[in-house]
Every structure is written in C-alpha cells, then in structure tokens.
Design a protein around this nucleic acid. Structure first.
Length: 368
DNA sequence: AAAGCGTGGTA
DNA sequence: TTACCAAGCTT
C-alpha cells in the first residue's frame, strides 16, 4: 500500500506536545478500569472490547470477563458457550472467537505471554494496527500512535484536511505522520489516552466540538477558520437492507426450543429461537408446524420488534407457540442454511439464561 | 477496496 | 424516525 503524506502534518509535533501536557495536567476522572493496571493481557482484552464499542458499555463486560478469565491460559481453555455468554450483547462476536484463538496461539507460540514485537502482535487473530499499537504503547511503552476514529477526526480538523477518513489509506497516512512525534515509555500511552480523551470529551463527533475547552484550539486550522463542522469528511455507508422475519417462541412444558446458528456469517455460532424469513400469519405458523409433525395447542402473538444491525434491519414478528411434545422431525432445519442443518434443542428456562448466548436481536422475545 | 460484521447512544 | 457513528478487523 502506498502511504501518502498527511497534508498539514507540520502541526503534529506541537499537537502531540500540547496533548501530552494536557493529559498530564489534569487528574484522570474517566474511571476506566483498564487504566488501573495496564498489563498486556488487560490492555488486550479491553482494546478488543472497545473496538466500535463505547467505554460505558464495555466497563461491566470487562470486569466480569477478567473475573471469569483472569489469564491468557484461562482464556485459551475456556468453553465456547461460556465465552459467548460472557460476550452476549456486546456485538461483533467474532471478536470473542478471535480472542480465544489468539490466546491459544500465545500459549503455544509465545509461552503464554503476549509478544512485545509489533508485527507478532499484528499476526494474532483479531489484532489489527490500532490494537497492536494500543498494546505496544500502553503495556510496553513503545512509540506507536493508536490511530482510531478519534485521531482521524481530530487530525482532520486540526489540519483542516478534507481527506476521506473512511479510506484505509487515510488511517495509514495519519499513523505514519504521527509516529515521528511519539515519545517512548509511559508517555507513549499517555499521549494515546490524550487523543482518545480529547475525542471523547471535547472534539466530539456528529455535532459541535467544544472548542472553548480544547487545549489545542490555538493550533487548530479549522477552528481558526470557523469551519470545524466541515470536518472530518467521510463517505457515507451503504444503505441497510430491510428484512422481515418471524420468530417462534416454542414451548413445551418447562422447556423452550433454541437452535445454534451457522458457524459463519451474521451472529455466527450463537443461539437463536427458530425463525423464518417473512412475516407469517398465525394461520401460516400453525400450518407450518403441523406439517412438521407438531401437536400445536396454542399460538399467541408477541409484541413486534425492530432490530438494527450495522448493515441489516430486521422487522420482527413473534409468536408464542405451545406444543404438546418435543418429539418431532428436524424443524425448519435447512431453511436458509448452507451448512449442516441445526436441529432444535429443548432447554429449561433457567438453563437458557445461564448457559446459552442469545443475541440482542432475538432477546426481545425471551420469556420472563 | 469495499463490504460484512452488533449494539446502543445521541441529535 | 432517521441518521450518524463509537478505543476496528477480516476477507
């Protein structure tokens, strides 16, 4: 990949000095537990959780995760369903699977400790340039800018640069332009924290930045021109496609039917209630289930729901169905599946909540 | 290079 | 309601 220069990068040495001083000048009041004891393992887990996810949401997940899996070796040996349960509701579930795969690689290839070398970090599944830089700086004091959305927004405004920050090349250009200004030791991590804190509390996205509170306002080209709102420039995402689905809450006595989703794709490997494409009527649901061999006793509508993924929007219709027994041929197993058919698993309600990870998209229908 | 991959907060 | 988008990575 050809790395182009970042126009306006002559400001960066002064910007880095200013932000580092700013970070050191005030006490850290953000109460982020991963800053308490920044071991390589702690930094790694927190940074994976923080990918595209707000710190306020991550906080409780992080504390619970570390309590359950306090070490690389514990993570490498964790049961898959237990791992997904710890991740339930956090989203981007491949992050959790990659964590375990990486932990196993760290045990077998690095003696159980995260590598210090940047390229070795980068080679681990789930660790890209941002996360490798965060670990290298926070845990090992290496001079690596951890360029994320905050950095791109701040840099675009400071330099009044109309570069499209959605492009991979923009991120690489900024990283290369900032690297020469980076200190080593504790300051490397503090400077990265400074960029993140500034982006989270002052140089805000979508809306008005709080320039009166910005330590770098004097350096900021966009602020000088009054054009803060013009930056950053970012190409719009593709529109979400809309889908209708019908979810069946099948119960038989104390048990409820769930099934495992395919190993690849959306919500891969998580558990779901049986569901079908389209908005099915009560009559259609009854006909379908009876054709599958169920003795249907009752069908009651559930409140409809809408679930927004990053790239899909689901309009969900729910039916609570009571059946007389759980002995049936595989139900709806092949419907829109390309891998091995998943058959229904009948579980008690308490067991469902304790053991099986149901993503938020299906959680609307979870019985009390 | 662009699309797939979750969820929740905010304006 | 809609749109944006957050401490991104993988393919």
């Amino acid at each position: 990949m050809k790395i182009l220069p970042w126009t306006g990068d002559s400001i960066f040495p002064a910007l880095c000095n200013t932000l580092l001083a700013w970070r050191k000048s005030a006490p850290d009041t953000r109460d982020l537990p991963w800053r308490d004891e920044p071991t390589p393992y702690h930094v790694w887990i927190s940074e994976i959780m923080l990918q595209q996810t707000r710190a306020a949401v991550v906080r409780s997940y992080y504390l619970r995760f570390l309590e359950a899996l306090p070490s690389v070796r514990a993570l490498a040996a964790v049961d898959d369903d237990a791992l997904m349960k710890l991740w339930q509701g956090l989203g981007y579930y491949s992050r959790a699977r990659n964590l375990k795969r990486a932990a196993q690689a760290i045990v077998t290839e690095h003696g159980g400790d995260l590598p210090r070398d940047f390229d070795e970090l980068l080679a681990l599944p789930g660790i890209g340039r941002y996360t490798a830089s965060a670990i290298a700086s926070f845990a090992y004091g290496q001079p690596r800018p951890a360029v994320d959305g905050n950095f791109l927004r701040i840099a675009a405004r400071i330099t009044a640069n109309s570069i499209d920050i959605a492009k991979d090349t923009s991120k690489r250009a900024l990283e290369a332009a900032l690297a020469p200004s980076y200190p080593t030791g504790r300051d490397a991590g503090l400077l990265n924290e400074a960029f993140m804190d500034l982006g989270a509390t002052v140089c805000l996205p979508n809306g008005v930045p709080l320039c009166h509170a910005c330590p770098a306002a004097q350096l900021c080209l966009a602020h000088d021109r009054g054009t803060e709102q013009d930056y950053p420039v970012k190409t719009a995402l593709k529109a979400r496609r809309k889908e209708r689905r019908t979810v069946l809450l099948l119960s038989c006595g104390e048990k409820i039917a769930i099934r495992k989703r395919p190993a690849r794709g959306l919500l891969a490997g998580l558990w779901e209630y049986p569901n079908l494409e389209g908005k099915l009527s009560q009559r259609a649901v009854r006909a379908l289930l009876e054709s599958e061999g169920f003795d249907v006793r009752d069908i009651v509508p559930l409140p409809s729901a809408r679930h927004i993924f990053s790239h899909i929007e689901w309009e969900l219709t729910g039916w609570a169905v009571t059946v007389a027994d759980t002995n049936e041929p595989p139900l709806m197993a092949a419907e829109d599946r390309t891998d091995a058919p998943a058959s229904l698993l009948w579980v008690r309600r308490a067991e469902l909540a304790d053991t099986y990870s149901i993503p938020t998209a299906f959680g609307y229908f979870t019985p009390q």
